[in-house]
């Protein structure tokens, strides 16, 4: 059988990353990339805004769920009065069409939901994947093949389909953000578990792990003390990629109406209602779309940077590839131009 899905995984996850270089070196490599710095700054700002949402709401003097009938033009079907979706000194980013709720505050609280669900789900995913991956690597043949089959199925299932289907059987009074954390967390861990297993298997063959075993360390101790530090680099790399994909999953589910329930604000939900408003009130579309896009992009850029920083071989390979190409392409390049 050929390994198909393996080609989807991030390149080269090896122990050399963290162990050989140390956190300081990783940090230096990360800092050297301007795009990574910008991405980190954007995300830092977003986290601050999300954390400070109640404070900022108080500063603006608005409430998340307060309706303002007077601010929308009922004669025109509920389009906000005033320019740019009803921007004013009281409502910094305008108001929601139809209801007149304050957009600025709703976007901030939406960021809270987005980040909370994404971070929570990522933690669950990492936990499940590390446990399953390590157990598969350290267990006997049957444990390994059983866990590997389950992992394969989890990878094969279309995430969104299963996540949405699961929400159908959960009682409606269950807190939705928590439900999303659990559902996303328990479904989308297959890829990471596979990485952990592969990494742990290759580490297991190394002398220092054998030494620890021979010295009488229990399986649990070996896993915790010898293997866990070794798998940290690929796990961190993968987790940074999981964050944006979780954010998009949450937004998608809320967009489809099976995620966060109103009146809790969410970017996906706003975009869903924006599909009926985009002609009359384009501002309402642009704001959540832009926020979601920038957040996902920043996480992805950061993920790329973290991958390179944790595994210097990726960077050097890219560099070599470029230099070689430049040399090789020099005559051909002139021809093309």
């Amino acid at each position: 059988m050929t390994d198909l899905i393996g080609t989807k995984e991030p390149e080269a996850v090896t122990p050399s990353g963290v162990a050989a270089s140390g956190a300081r070196q990783v940090w230096r490599r990360l800092r050297a990339r301007k795009s990574a710095l910008v991405a980190a700054a954007v995300l830092g700002l977003l986290v601050l805004l999300a954390l400070g949402a109640p404070l900022l709401a108080a500063l603006e003097g608005q409430d998340v769920n307060a309706y303002h009938d007077t601010l929308v033009d009922s004669a025109r079907g509920g389009v906000p009065s005033g320019s740019f979706g009803g921007v004013s000194a009281d409502h910094w980013l305008g108001v929601e069409p139809g209801t007149g709720r304050d957009l600025f505050v709703r976007l901030l609280y939406g960021a809270r939901v987005s980040l909370m669900v994404a971070v929570g789900a990522t933690l669950v995913q990492v936990l499940v994947a590390v446990v399953v991956g390590l157990a598969a690597a350290l267990g006997n043949r049957f444990v390994d093949s059983f866990l590997s089959r389950i992992t394969e199925v989890m990878i094969a299932l279309p995430l969104l389909v299963f996540a949405i289907a699961l929400t159908a059987v959960v009682p409606t009074d269950f807190p939705r953000p928590l439900l999303l954390v659990v559902v996303i967390g328990l479904i989308a861990w297959g890829g990471l578990a596979r990485v952990v297993r592969a990494q742990a298997l290759s580490l297991k063959k190394l002398d220092y792990v054998s030494a620890a075993r021979l010295a009488g360390g229990s399986t649990w101790r070996v896993a915790r003390r010898e293997l866990l530090p070794g798998i940290a680099a690929p796990v961190i790399t993968y987790a940074v990629y999981l964050l944006p994909s979780n954010i998009v999953l949450e937004a998608s589910m809320s967009f489809l109406g099976v995620g966060v329930k109103p009146p809790t604000p969410s970017w996906g939900q706003m975009l869903s209602s924006a599909t009926t408003w985009f002609r009359a009130d384009p501002t309402y579309v642009v704001l959540p779309a832009l926020l979601l896009f920038v957040t996902t992009l920043a996480f992805t850029v950061l993920g790329d940077a973290v991958r390179v920083a944790l595994d210097p071989r990726v960077a050097s390979r890219l560099r070599v590839g470029r230099a070689k190409a430049r040399k090789a392409a020099a005559p051909a390049g002139g021809e093309a131009a």
């Binding site: 937004a251 985009f278 579309v285 779309a289 896009f293 996902t296 992009l297 992805t300």
Partner: peptide, 18 residues
């Protein structure tokens, strides 16, 4: 391509419709 990966269908779809 980075931008493409960061754009869920409901954003690119809305943009195209608009």
């Amino acid at each position: 391509t980075l931008a493409g990966i960061a754009t869920p269908v409901f954003i690119s779809g809305l943009a195209l419709l608009m």
